[in-house]
Structure formats: structure tokens, C-alpha cells
Amino acid sequence: MRDTRGVLYPARLPEFHRLPPAAAARDLAVWFWIPEWSIEPGRSSRQEIVGYPALNLVVENGEVSLSGATTRGSHRDLTGTGWAVGALLRPAAVAALVDEPAALVDSAQPVDAPALADAVSAVMASGEGHRERGVAVFSEWLARRVGPLDDGARQANALVDVLMGEGAADSVEEAATRLAVSTRTLQRIAHRHVGVSPAAMIRRRRLQEAAEQLRIDPAADLAALAADLGYADHAHLSRDFRRVLGIAPRTYRAASSAQS
């Protein structure tokens, strides 16, 4: 699976895979992402991301960390040789890992999970099939850590499905109507299980889709694209791009085309 939505310049990626979770973690992770890289000495590879509104649990260099949802684009410069195995978490997994996900927005914290770090590290060094086995042991650990899901966790998953999935809602009010809850309840669920507001999740989805469409179709009309994605107008799309990524859509389109 090589879905690169959220990655601003896929041509720069090292070897990169997105794999589905094992059955035990199907309600706990959207997917697992695994980059592997070997960069020549003295060089680096910059990876620029407009992340999903979700938390990520990551094993890298023998350690485990939990990173929160982001409000802006981010980047990382890869050097040397390495790998990471990360789980893009579904909201149902969050309560077992952090009490206040809003406190992790745009930041990360270490997680005391040496058994997970050791198990994933051993598998990643084991040769053929290491990615699939890494996902399997990570999924099993996550399922044990979270335990049985309650109704609140399942409702939180449904919230993200409505806001980020196929045929996603275009407004907070529409999402609340689909889930048969009040907008206040929607806000509370998002705060407890994601850390950002439903409106912020909708904005991030639109921005990711806009960036993806500009990569796929460099000739796309920006005004038409803005209308298709629910922006008020072309200027609204441009403001969102500049606020989060620091560049205009036209600039991003030109840079993306040059690197494809």
C-alpha cells in the first residue's frame, strides 16, 4: 500500500510502506507506516508532511514515542541509515496512551514500552517479511494495551470516519447530524480522543486533498478545486495553504511538478 496523502513531496521519499493493521488492531490503527532509508554520508533527505489530525505511536532507535495531532506542516531531515515503524492511531486507542491528547498537539512524548521497542526492533532486523511481522507484533501489543473497547471509544472512531472518511461531512453540523449527537458533544469527543476540534479536522482533510490534487493534476483550476473541496473561494484555499504550509498553492504546485 503506497498511499502518500499527507506527504507533500512523495518523490523525495526513501523506501516507504503503509500497511494495514492486523485484525486485533483494526479498530485501533488506521495503518502502520514504515520508512527505511540509507542516505549517503554528508547528505540528507528532507521529508515534508501535512499530517493527519490524529496521534502517532512510533518505534525508532529502540525507543517508543507518542506524537500528537499537528496544526501546521512539519519536516524531518533523514540522515545515515535507519527505519521507523509508526501507527496512525484511531481515536479508540488514544485514552489508553495519554490522558490529555490536546496537550500533545504539535509535540511528542516518550512512552515507557520497552517490550514493544524490543519486539519491533528484533523483527525489523530479521530479514524478508520483516515489515509484515513488525506490524503483527505492534498490532498485538496495541490490542493488549488498549483492551476491550467501550461505547465511547467506538463513538470516537465513528466521529473520525464521518469527518475524514469517504463521503466525509462538509461541516461540523452535518457531522453531528449524522452521528445523532449535539455539536457540543462532537467537540467533547474530539477533544478527548484527538486533541483538536472537528472544524480543524475538516480543514486538514481539505488541505490534504487540495495538495494531493495539485500533485496529480498540475493543470487543475484553483478556483474549481477550491469549490470542489468546500472552500468559500480561491482566496480561502490560498489562505489555508499559506497558514499551514507557508507557501501559496501555485508555488507548491510548481515545486511538486519539478520533483515528480
Rank of each mutant, 00 (worst) to 15 (best):
V146W: 08
R243N: 09
L207E: 04
P114E: 11
S238M: 08
R43E: 05
E132G: 00
L237A: 11
A180H: 10
D77M: 12
G68M: 04
G80E: 09
P21T: 10
P218K: 13
A219P: 01
V160P: 00
E166V: 10
L186A: 15
S182Q: 03
I34P: 03
V94C: 07
A122S: 14
L186N: 10
R188Y: 10
R18E: 13
W37I: 06
P35W: 15
L19Y: 06
P35F: 15
E15C: 01
L8M: 08
A84F: 10
V58S: 13
G42K: 09
P14M: 07
A211P: 01
A210R: 03
D151Y: 01
Q47S: 02
L207P: 04
G51M: 09
H191D: 14
L159D: 02
A11H: 07
V123M: 05
G62Q: 07
E166S: 13
Y9F: 15
S45Y: 00
S67A: 12
V85S: 05
S256L: 06
L163N: 00
P198W: 07
R90E: 11
M201C: 13
R203E: 15
S182W: 09
P249T: 01
A103H: 05
V194M: 08
N157D: 11
E128T: 12
A96E: 10
L89N: 04
S45L: 15
S126L: 05
H75L: 11
E166Y: 05
H236D: 15
P41I: 06
D240P: 00
A23I: 02
N157V: 03
R26Y: 04
A258P: 04
A92C: 07
E132S: 08
I39L: 10
V172P: 00
M124Q: 11
R5P: 00
A22E: 11
I49G: 01
N157R: 03
A117W: 01
A235N: 11
T4Y: 11
L159R: 01
Y231H: 09
P10E: 04
A254G: 13
W37H: 09
T79G: 13
R154N: 07
A113W: 00
H234G: 02
V181L: 10
G6Y: 08
R253F: 03
P218F: 11
L207S: 05
G62S: 08
S197T: 15
V64Q: 05
R131H: 15
A200F: 12
G195C: 05
V244P: 01
D228L: 12
S139W: 07
M1Y: 03
P41W: 05
R5M: 07
L149Y: 05
E48F: 00
L104W: 10
A158D: 14
L55E: 09
G6W: 10
A11I: 01
S45P: 00
V85R: 04
P249D: 00
E132D: 14
F138D: 02
R2I: 12
A235Y: 11
R76N: 12
A102H: 12
M164F: 07
L78H: 13
G51Y: 05
M1D: 06
N61Y: 03
R145K: 15
A25S: 10
